[in-house]
Design a protein around this nucleic acid. Structure first.
Lengths: 248, 248
DNA sequence: GAGTGGTCTAGACCACCCC
DNA sequence: GGGTGGTCTAGACCACTCA
């Protein structure tokens, strides 16, 4: 079997399985036994299992010892999953919107008083570099993201022409370039709030309308705090969805 | 090496690794190479890797090809993670509270007008069984959970004495027993809202104070919708935290 | 007891990172 | 080029479910 190696076998198997599931190849919402799949796809059972474990983690299937691998159409159809999709353009796209983004502000600032967050003590610089993005869903304002990078983690002043990010990946590359530490993870907190005058104007909602705010702390692979972010989600356009596997 | 088999090897390895990390056994926030760990713990590399992959998924470490397995203290210290902990008692406990729960209402109902949710069309019974739980953090009301089970999925009327749930696991057992389908996953949506009179009274917050509501749909292993749930989190006591691995 | 997933191993070779 | 994780295989045996 000739194989052009552009991605790992288990990911190709995963893609293939999803395709087959969507096509309706499997009856009774159940996959064939693992050794059968192994035979069908010409891949060892271990590798098939890697694909299945990924699908299980994403909620697409449930692995049940003694029974089989059960398919969940309910999760396959679930859109805008914040547990899986972090790129807001992709999130909006997944929700069926035409997604675009514009940078509405960027530059140095020394006062963070507009943010009612308790900036952590590990994060007390004199100056911060601020970048604000507005994500549009079908041209309507949907997500406002305010990114704050402390001066101490930047090696040079970011260049404006490098900031027209059209994907989250590019924002991460940007951070990698200017902070000398590769980004690895983020810690987010969701909090209830009201839209103040500024937010309500930008997101075109009523003032003091309830809104969910996400505070996000980005860390590098060596655990250095690289960026703080406040994100406001349009209360009606955005659905913050996630899936949990129970019983485990 | 004698081994009492009460849990899989890779989970014991995982526990052991966490213990060693917390103890500070590893310098430079980096684990020893995988083959070294394999030798140290007397376990094959494959099994060690299963443990490491779990740790990576939970954000405790980051696996970097060519570099090593890097430890994140930032995530190890993160509390009340809704991406990992689903049992509210455990969530509160993790947050450092003394956690208790009381059932404040249960019984049949035919009107769901108090809920401003669009009950899905797959869920239009004449009668619903309703169970309300109030979770307390240090005796203060912290989480209100309203569970609604449609008549059509119940085999008999739930018995009151089986409902003093002191863990999420028991609620799942309860559902398993009365619905004839084992529970498997849930789909949650977070939405902003204001505390109405009832909610504000129960949670002891100001009326019309912004609050986050979680709507949760529970599904069985054969993808049948078994239960709908509305959950209100106290805006100040509860921190809804989650961790994302980036770059993947 | 047959069927199915869960755990575990030993070993081979590839891909990436850094010196 | 040496070190480290990533992928993949073949095979053995265990544990659970259902009839």
């Amino acid at each position: 079997m000739s194989r052009i190696k552009y991605s790992p076998l288990y990911l190709e198997a995963k893609t293939e399985l999803i395709k087959m599931i969507k096509k309706g190849d499997f009856k009774n919402n159940k996959l064939p036994p693992e050794d059968k799949l192994s035979e069908m796809l010409g891949i060892s059972r271990s590798t098939i299992r890697e694909a299945l474990i990924t699908l299980d983690r994403e909620g697409i299937i449930t692995k049940k010892q003694g029974i089989g691998n059960l398919i969940h159409r309910s999760t396959l159809e679930t859109k805008m999953r914040i547990d899986l999709i972090r790129d807001f353009l992709k999130l909006l796209d997944d929700g069926g919107y035409k997604a675009t983004v514009k940078r509405i502000k960027s530059g140095w600032t020394d006062k963070l008083t507009q943010f009612d967050t308790k900036i952590p003590s590990s994060f007390r610089d004199k100056k911060y570099f601020l970048i604000e993005f507005l994500y549009l869903a079908n041209s309507q304002p949907a997500i406002l993201a305010i990114n704050i990078i402390p001066e101490s983690v930047l090696n040079t002043t970011p260049q404006s022409e490098e900031m027209p990010f059209d994907s989250f990946k590019k924002y991460l590359s940007f951070l990698n370039k200017y902070t000398d530490e590769e980004i690895s993870h983020s810690i987010s907190k969701y909090a209830p709030g009201k839209a103040n005058q500024t937010i309500s104007k930008i997101l075109k909602i009523k003032e003091s309308e309830p809104i969910i705010k996400r505070e996000e702390f980005y860390y590098g692979i060596f655990d250095k705090l690289l960026c703080y972010s406040e994100i406001f989600f349009h209360p009606h356009l955005i659905s913050l969805t996630m899936i949990h596997k129970l019983n485990q």
